[in-house]
């Protein structure tokens, strides 16, 4: 019984409850690195690690957190997870760590991580909290990876550093610069919203 419940939680976070499309939350730190697919993947893995484990940790200690300082406790736990990610990247992937610069640290202030610890970890037992954190991270990551693919493909004609489009391709250099990220995300939100609305309109007619 609990297994199906957890599975439902997992699916909800990937589809209908996906925070990027519903409220466009939490894009702050990660959208900035979506001009290269590889960096995006590293960021997303860091984010999944952080959401999953901080949810688990906070759920384990949820009964001993005084409600008045709960925000501070949440931020501190999240910051610890992010430090682990940061040190790991620095030790094993120094190049990527340098390219990501401050953005790894900014996972701390990502609204998605905070939102899930606040809404789920403080009210539910460890296992569902872990599942929720993990799936929230995955649901968030696949959207950003899609955006990164679009931007890198249109901006440099390559995906994962491998040239895909032929030499006749003219790079849309705007795509790898800041405005491109805004436009691609807007188009994604548009497509998803339009899609979600169609069945509702049919039901009305």
């Amino acid at each position: 019984m609990t297994a199906t419940k957890n599975w439902k939680l997992f699916k909800d976070n990937l589809g209908p409850q996906n925070p990027i499309f519903v409220q466009v939350l939490g894009i702050c730190s990660t959208l900035a690195v979506t001009n290269v697919v590889k960096n995006t993947l590293v960021m997303c893995l860091g984010l999944i690690f952080t959401t999953a484990l901080s949810n688990l940790a906070l759920s384990l200690i949820r009964n001993s957190i005084p409600p008045r300082v709960r925000m501070m406790v949440e931020v501190l736990v999240i910051a610890c997870m992010v430090i682990v990610v940061d040190i790991y990247l620095k030790a094993f992937y120094p190049d990527i760590s340098r390219q990501l610069g401050p953005y790894v640290g900014l996972i701390i202030t990502n609204c998605i991580v905070m939102g899930h610890t606040e809404a789920v970890a403080l009210t539910s037992p460890p296992l569902p909290a872990l599942v929720d954190g993990f799936s929230a991270g995955v649901g968030y990551s696949y959207v950003l990876l899609l955006i990164a693919c679009c931007r890198e493909l249109l901006g440099t004609g390559a995906v994962w550093g491998v040239q895909v489009l032929g030499p006749h391709w003219v790079n849309w250099s705007i795509m790898v610069m800041a405005p491109g990220g805004f436009f691609v995300l807007a188009v994604f939100v548009w497509i998803v919203k339009g899609w979600g609305e169609r069945p509702a309109q049919k039901a009305q007619a």
Partner: peptide, 23 residues
């Protein structure tokens, strides 16, 4: 505004245009 773009969608497009202007 096209219905799907209302709210965050159009805000992102405006932000993109502003970013272009600031460039």
């Amino acid at each position: 505004i096209p219905r799907g773009l209302e709210g965050p969608g159009i805000a992102l497009i405006i932000a993109g245009t502003m970013a272009l202007a600031f460039m």
